[in-house]
Design a protein around this nucleic acid. Structure first.
Lengths: 166, 166
DNA sequence: CTTGGAAAGTCAACAACGCTGACATAAAAT
DNA sequence: ATTTTATGTCAGCGTTGTTGACTTTCCAAG
């Protein structure tokens, strides 16, 4: 377990513990960069990452229900509710009762919500764009392949659904 | 800004907003998987991610000072101190006064600390190994290239230092 | 040798955001 | 008619981040 490991006689150098550790640390350090820009913007509005995540996915899939959002975000309804309430109170998110099923609440961004979404995703996209550009298209393909393989089953399901349109 | 963008006449399809959005969501979903296994283990010991991070980097660079760890983790000393205190009290971490500079505290894992470190990193490595194996060596290279490019300057400095040995 | 500042530790208070448990309401489904 | 589902709300708690204030230790420069 401590060293490379072989398969069919071929040494798999990229599977050494050292390579894996580098990947683990790369994830840690990169994720901080990934959230740094939005975090700075959110401070201005006294919101946190939870607000950002809610806004992101409501924008991504307008009209999604609270339950759907809950399962995408993987948090409890109490935790999400606290965030949604402030976003609705502040006029960034609109909650509409379902036509067919009146228990459901369908979530939409208001104009104001869309404005914040653009500000947040703009900053995050800029960093991602710079990273993509620096690494090149082939690296980007690999980047996404590894990340997809790292996801839990349930999260991959959501990711795939998002990937191929709402 | 809304579509692909061109450079030198060549269309850069991997830099479309859609591609960037996929990368952003991949990071979000993958990071949850990345932390899922350690989180489950940490629950057993009533520790959190902050404890894991401290343990990881103390193991990575035995004898590092509190200040160094502080800058690697990017948190305040008060926040780190709370975590370190419990780890020291529980006998997972040893804090030794510096020989040259007696103000400095050099941090080491105890036997018990190393045992937990192995349990945590073992689980995390397993997931990373599976993802690496599924994606292949070329994808792994790209994965790391993009992540490196995504880091803040200061974090990349730490990452590079770690990369080339303590 | 005195003093300035760095390193470390501590205390208090607070905020974001996870969690559980309990409970209420409305409406769909059986 | 009853059960289940979707949602919302209240109360309380834990982890982990923050700021601010203050102390002790001790190296190093004046």
């Amino acid at each position: 377990m401590a060293d490379s490991g072989t398969q069919g006689g071929e040494t798999l150098l990229f599977l050494t513990d050292e390579q894996l550790r580098k990947g683990i640390e790369a994830m840690f350090f990169a994720y901080r960069g990934f959230t740094a820009d939005p975090d700075r913007i959110l401070e201005k509005y006294a919101y946190g990452r939870a607000h950002h995540r809610a806004i992101h996915f409501i924008n991504r899939q307008p009209g999604l229900t609270v339950t759907t959002l809950l399962s995408v975000l993987g948090v409890t309804k109490q935790s999400l509710n606290r965030v949604l309430r402030t976003l609705i109170e502040d006029g960034l998110v609109e909650s509409r009762v379902g036509r067919k099923d009146k228990r459901e609440r369908h979530l939409f961004l208001t104009e104001k919500g869309e404005a914040l979404e653009r500000e947040l995703s703009g900053a995050q996209r800029e960093r991602m764009r710079a990273a993509y550009r620096a690494a090149g298209p082939q690296a980007v393909a690999g980047f996404r392949q590894v990340l997809e393989a790292m996801m839990d089953f349930e999260m991959r399901r959501h990711y795939q659904m998002m990937k191929d349109g709402a």
